[in-house]
Design a protein around this nucleic acid. Structure first.
Lengths: 215, 215
DNA sequence: CCTTCAATTATTCGCGCGTATAATTCCGCG
DNA sequence: CGCGGAATTATACGCGCGAATAATTGAAGG
């Protein structure tokens, strides 16, 4: 008998909704980081996630829906590690603050990919109300946590709000510069400068002490 | 005789090359600031400049040529005022530094339009070699000037390079936050915090003094 | 006034985009 | 085993893009 005129339709396997949504969002963030917002076309996203563009419509409705979810995931990925690091640092206020600052400039966060991803979304946050809300929430969560850590210090020569704004700006700026000109800084230099400057702003020389004495 | 079948071709007047190039570049920057890179299509740029798209090709060759020139102009517009302010501040090192810092956070620079414009180009600077060169040149010119101002101070508790990196980061971060969340700060608050924090980093209490006593 | 030629506009092309809808195929359940 | 329906793919449409080329027109010089 003849071989059945085999379909040239691409075979596929069904997957859970969670897995598909996760894969699609990850594909968006990869593409935006590599090529800017303009690179994250539905066709490119689908190809990277190993599906076809129609599936995006199935799960996210339209492109804006997908971009919104992706943005939320990005913000979460940037803020959560810092909050977790502070919690993991134990009860000493200075140690908590140092852990927070160090986590914000962790080498993993300090790469151009993250900065490019963040910058690519900036403009969207100025026009799309949903994105702007997500942006402000993430930003203020970060800064408020910082202000809380500062307020918990035994002494502080500045109003906590002012100190939090200044230190947050310092972190933002160093993160930007370190991410955009990675070869412009020696390894660890960015973190070292952050702790030094923060220590001077807050009058906290202990902030720069290394914590692990050799055994 | 019949009325000549009057042409429906758009009338125009000739203009100098400089005026046309300037108008087209200004149109690009306006559109990018308002709607991101994606909004600066050749058709939209031409319409805003009051010409037709073909003229862009005539003067800039292709879209990339236009975008490169526009980027250079943006960087120039951001860095030059600060350098000029420092020069105009006279010979006192502290006054020069204060003028430089204040100019970087001048309300005219501290608006979302400028930040959005800058962010929109970030990704391009990571892929286009010509843009990257222009970016690094502008960035380092700014930071090196800052380092020079710091080195001219009578005393400095930090290596000038470290202090310049930290202060530059502080300025960048405050500029970002002030531009993106304009309603999050009281008028003048951003500049005040910048001077306060810089004064503490450099051990320069004079930096925060107001200079104009009432007559 | 008329010629000349660069400055400017008009038209066309092919492409990739996002959306919409129809057609198929995988897989759990009976 | 087979069947029903949701998950997934395929196809088509209209639009705006950047680029290329052809056609026109404004203005300067003789």
């Amino acid at each position: 008998m003849h071989p059945a005129p085999q379909s040239d339709r691409r075979p596929y396997i069904r997957d859970s909704e969670d897995a598909r949504r996760t894969a699609l969002v990850a594909a968006v963030l990869d593409l935006v980081a590599e090529g800017g917002i303009e690179a994250a076309t539905l066709r490119a996203v689908a190809a990277r996630a190993g599906v076809t563009p129609g599936l995006i419509r199935h799960y996210f409705g339209d492109k804006d829906g997908l971009m919104r979810v992706a943005y939320g995931r990005m913000m979460q990925g940037m803020v959560d590690p810092c909050l977790a690091a502070a919690v993991a640092a134990g009860g000493d206020p200075v140690a908590r603050l140092r852990a927070y600052l160090a986590a914000a400039l962790d080498p993993a966060a300090l790469d151009g990919r993250t900065v490019a991803l963040w910058a690519a979304y900036i403009h969207r946050t100025r026009q799309d109300a949903a994105l702007r809300a997500a942006h402000e929430a993430g930003y203020l969560a970060f800064r408020d946590a910082l202000e809380g850590l500062i307020a918990a210090l035994p002494v502080c020569p500045l109003p906590p709000r002012d100190a939090a704004i200044a230190l947050n700006a310092l972190l933002d700026g160093l993160w930007l510069e370190g991410g955009l000109l990675p070869q412009g800084f020696a390894p660890g230099e960015v973190q070292r400068i952050a702790l030094t400057a923060a220590a001077r702003v807050l009058d906290l020389p202990e902030l720069t002490e290394t914590e692990g004495p050799k055994p």
